[in-house]
Computed example of a mutant assay.
Amino acid sequence: MKQNSNTDLKDQRNDKLFHYTVKSCALFVLLIMLAASFSMIWGGKEAFQTFGTSFVWNSAWDPVSKQFGALVPIYGTLVTSCIAMIIAVPVSFGIAIFITNLAPNWLKTPISTAIELLAGIPSIIYGMWGLFVFVPFMADHVYPWVDEHMGALPLIGQLFQGPPIGLGMLTAGIVLSIMIIPFVSSIMREVFSTVPTPLIESAYAVGNTTWEVIWDIVLPYTRSSVLGGIFLGLGRALGETMAVTFVLGNAHQLSISLLQPGNSISATIANEFTEADSSLYLSSLLALGFILFVVTFIVLALARFMLGRLARREGA
């Protein structure tokens, strides 16, 4: 009886030790996040004190006269990320659906392996490929056609007018989409694989087509997880640095045209951090980092909010 009591006490101590260990790991993540945000806002306080809230809305970026504004990098970050998601989401959806529902068994493994290999390629490789291969292709074959045929369209024509230099937000968005497709499609593939086979077979048994099974069975069953994967891909696109730096053009000019060179927050920091020759210049770059942190945090918080609402609705 005494031996059993000692065993129970030992189990309780081990359980408490395990509980505090995993709790400390979770709190350590929060500590890292708070420390990173505090270091950036502390480093950028001079810029915020000098320019105030106009730092976010000002498009000027002139290190010589010490005038800095974050509007152009913020605009470039959001536009290139939106282009990437517009391309990547339907392509990733098609890849995941094909692998899980349509591909023969002998083809599933090679495609899945190729996706995993693409996900493991460093971003600088994508950037070098984009600069030396994709940019010349865009300059010679895509940008001239887009400017000639789409630049004359009413209302949206200004989006597609610009010089055929190959560098620009459209090119950066396409390169970003190629980078995040492996991540989003892998998540979708794993999620689609969790749909119970009897559920799919019963849908086919009552006469549903493949499209109806996917639209009415697979997607509703995995909706929350699919949205989570999409937002994770968006978070990756917002923070990408090297690939965007190579192909975006790194020009501090605000233009509505997708063919014009632009800039992003991460590219601005990567290009100019070593050139910061004044405390205000360095503080402005750190302030940009804090703004990127806030934008990414808002996107992921919005994702959690949407997923929570979907979960409550499905539970109801």
Score class of each variant (00 low, 15 high):
Gly308Ile: 09
Phe246Ile: 03
Ser123Phe: 08
Thr80Arg: 00
Leu307Lys: 11
Tyr20Pro: 00
Gly43Phe: 01
Asn14Pro: 08
His149Leu: 06
Thr241Ala: 07
Asn263Ile: 03
Val89Cys: 01
Leu170Ser: 01
Asp140Glu: 12
Pro110Ile: 04
Arg223Glu: 05
Ser278Phe: 02
Ala237His: 07
Ile217Gly: 01
Thr53Phe: 14
Ser112Tyr: 09
Asn208Asp: 02
Ala35Ser: 14
Asp140Ala: 13
Glu272Asn: 08
Phe160Thr: 12
Trp61Asn: 09
Asp147Ile: 07
Ser59Asp: 05
Ile174Gly: 00
Arg309Tyr: 13
Cys82Met: 12
Gly76Ile: 05
Ala60His: 07
Val195Pro: 06
Leu153Asn: 02
Ile111Cys: 01
Leu155Gly: 02
Thr268Leu: 07
Phe290Pro: 03
Lys108Val: 03
Met188Leu: 08
Gln49Pro: 03
Asp8Glu: 14
Leu234Asp: 03
Phe231Thr: 15
Phe51His: 08
Glu275Cys: 01
Phe18Cys: 07
His19Val: 11
Glu314Leu: 10
Lys66Ser: 10
Leu34His: 08
Met150Leu: 14
Phe183Gly: 00
Met1Tyr: 09
Ser5His: 12
Met128Leu: 11
Lys108Asp: 02
Leu34Lys: 06
Leu159Pro: 09
Ala270Lys: 07
Ile115Met: 12
Asp140Thr: 08
Val206Arg: 15
Leu34Cys: 13
Leu259Ala: 05
Phe48Leu: 11
Val226Arg: 05
Tyr221Phe: 10
Ala103Gln: 07
Ser37Arg: 03
Val294Trp: 12
Tyr281Asp: 00
Ala84Cys: 02
Phe290Trp: 10
Thr210Asp: 11
Met306Asn: 04
Gly315Asp: 03
Phe297Ala: 13
Phe132Tyr: 13
Ala70Val: 08
Lys10Ala: 09
Gly207Lys: 08
Leu27Met: 10
Leu307Cys: 07
Phe68Glu: 01
Thr77Leu: 02
Val135Ala: 04
Leu258Phe: 12
Phe231His: 03
Gly262Asn: 10
